[in-house]
Design a binder for these strands. Sequence first.
DNA 1: CCGTATTTGTTCGTATGTATT
DNA 2: AAATACATACGAACAAATACG
Lengths: 234, 234
Amino acid sequence: MRVWESIAEALRDAIQSGHYPAGAKLPTETELATRFGVNRHTLRRAIAGLREEGLVYSRRGAGVFVQHRPTEYPLGKRVRFNRNLLAAGQTPTRKLLLMETRNADRAERDALQLDHSTPRVHALEGLSLADGEPIALFRSVFPAQRFPALPGHLAKHHSVTEALRASGLNDYVRDSTRLTAKIASPTQASHLQLNAGAPILRAVSVNVDLDGNPVEYGRTWFAGERVSLVVGED
Amino acid sequence: MRVWESIAEALRDAIQSGHYPAGAKLPTETELATRFGVNRHTLRRAIAGLREEGLVYSRRGAGVFVQHRPTEYPLGKRVRFNRNLLAAGQTPTRKLLLMETRNADRAERDALQLDHSTPRVHALEGLSLADGEPIALFRSVFPAQRFPALPGHLAKHHSVTEALRASGLNDYVRDSTRLTAKIASPTQASHLQLNAGAPILRAVSVNVDLDGNPVEYGRTWFAGERVSLVVGED
DNA sequence: CCGTATTTGTTCGTATGTATT
DNA sequence: AAATACATACGAACAAATACG
């Protein structure tokens, strides 16, 4: 077995045993390297393996941290919510609930890969309807520096894709989507016209331009009773 | 821009322009390194990038080759429960609840494209656990005529993939997956050790062999609190 | 079939850049 | 402003798998 693999294994065990709980910072690379008696490169190879597994993440200048998240399950590369809503032939509309420009929070900064010099994001919240029936609540943020005129375009156009195009972004693709089932909060239930305790499907997604730069970080809550997402069959 | 990125870009262009057609062997790492005027490590980093994109693959002792897989073979087509959990650093186990051979119902007939002469299916129900914690209930059916000895193999092996391989199916891919949020039924909640009314994620999927023939029709109910499905980021 | 040269994979060493604390 | 910590790059050597005469 390769040296870096056994080190990765040891670190994985330490994380899973709770020695390094979620969010905890691992010792520095140099520290771990000497502790395991290997070169820093070898240790970094082990870290890279854990990072690929999604078990840890690295922040330059800060450290390596334990990712806090439940079980994850890769499904496929491509999701197209708009096309895959089983409502074939329904007319989609959008109802704007909020639009503002503010500083990004931690999750948004990480997802959009913003540094501290460009903390501003345009935030957009709204309701998606099909034939007048509410289907989903969404909350999207866009890097403000890259799309300074986006709020105006979002107000004018009725689709995010069009507004982004008007801001100079011709094409973008979905990088990743995380899905989980939740219970609707009272506010969400009211917006989606659901009963209290109704199941909803939460999707957290990142869209990137063709160079891989994040352009949108979005969270969407689908009414579980009304929506079925399809993965594959592109 | 990082050096290795620009090299990856140059190589990507060369591949996409047809300079290195599908299946072709790239020059050796040392050769390319001197050609680009960088260290072999730097060039290897570029190759690693292309490999992550699925554009090339490496064979030790042989070389680096151009992958032939334009659009028809998008990544993420392979969904393997055990492998996914292992990659996440969790120990997968399976608890069998039921195994029987019976006639297919309407949905199963349609999904597996069975005609009335071959109505029999092997049905498999069970519980999937990660590190001992139940994360999903599954119900799978397989065409009995194609895999006559499958029940024995399912009992012996601890993974569906292995059992199918023992039945002569070397490889299969996911054709489509449909996702919805639901509320757990009392039975489901009890199996998954969830409270009544807990949200679950229902996935309905079809796996096909490399010729496109359906080999498995499965329904899975994930514990919403414990599982997050990931689309993309293979 | 064997031995050898080739080619990728792994490891150690060292230096410098850059973001965070 | 300084120290810390991860990121990138160059150099060297050996191991492991493959290809070839």
